[in-house]
Design a protein around this nucleic acid. Sequence first.
DNA 1: AATAGCACGGCAGTTACTTCA
DNA 2: CCTGAAGTAACTGCCGTGCTA
Length: 205
Amino acid sequence: MALSPKSSSLELSISLPSFSQLSSHPSSGEHMVRDLDINQTPKTEDREWMMIAAEPYANDEDSNSCGRRRKKLRLTKEQSHLLEDSFIQKHTLTSKQKLELATFLKLSQRQVEVWFQNRRARSKLKHTEMECKYLKRCFGSLKEQNRLLQKEVEELRALNAMPASILTMCPRCERATDATDNAVKEGTATRSQSRRTISSSSSLC
DNA sequence: AATAGCACGGCAGTTACTTCA
DNA sequence: CCTGAAGTAACTGCCGTGCTA
């Protein structure tokens, strides 16, 4: 989806729903996104725009091995919002789209590129974490199922050890014969135990 | 047609910096 | 204030792909 020509000359082939709102100032028609220069010192009232001053740090004690401190900018809410909108539409951009978006946001193409790379990584990480949680839940459920089945196996083994004369329940109608009822009455076997003897029972109605 | 060299882009892993409790 | 954890912008190195000579 291309941007509205009314709002901006920027033509993205992806949908950026909020661009029309943010792209033009109501009165002047200029971009509302602040003029963000990576080499610009942040204004004191703008906490969103925090970065290390871009001057060389050749004489700075905190300089790294290259003699420069890494510059790090904090994206404004508007920038983050628009990047996020773009990401929702499309997880990867062509270089042209990157350039257009970068121009619009007053960022470098590289910054947009890096943002999308990091965003994809975060997205993947989140997905992996969710998958991990899901698998853990599955594991818990399967563990419980396994426990119940093991229990049932033990019960069946115990029943197999019983004399055949008291295991005479009909598997079709699940009605115990007199012999089984008697056994239950006498406490020799429970009904649940009797029902589980279907496979081993030989007396059918 | 096969191949080496190159440019480009994405990804994984890491680093460096900011923010906040 | 200090500190550690969390979040994230930026960097690095590797790999796959497409193009071209």
